[in-house]
Amino acid sequence: MIRIRAIHLALLLMGVLAPVAAHAQSEPPAKCTLVEVLASFQKPKGGVDPKIPASVRSSLPTDQGDTFEFLAQRAVAAARGKPVSAKLANGDALELTYKERLAGDGKARLRMGVRLIDASGRLAVESIIVMEDGAFVIYGGSIHKNGKLVVALSCTL
């Protein structure tokens, strides 16, 4: 009798959990874009590298430098609940975790966990952000070459 109840319970749990798991697997990953820029003060001023995407140019921290050099741009897909790490130009790593999609009025809003880990493996920044589709957030300040590394992060579904 007990064995039959256990089997029923297992079937019930499978019935409940299987669709949830299937939904999680079918949910598209968050598509994130990382744009790496080197910010520094130079004489004469170097200005803004034209390779830097126009959407990022207006977001650059102009108080952290007068010269902005484009370093790299990459796309990172973050599946829900699974951290994905991107190596940065100075050896640091940016770890992204897509947590959930929030119901919004029109634009998709994503809750993301972002961790910045320095080259020696120590955690430097741990943050949780909610981003609108297409919006940028800047992570920066790590030393790189003769300036500071600037990472513009944007995510969408």
Binding site: S127, I128, I129, G134
Partner: peptide, 11 residues
């Protein structure tokens, strides 16, 4: 367009 819910700096 970005809501910074939580930030912790370590080291």
């Amino acid at each position: 367009g970005v809501d910074v819910e939580k930030t912790e700096f370590s080291n």
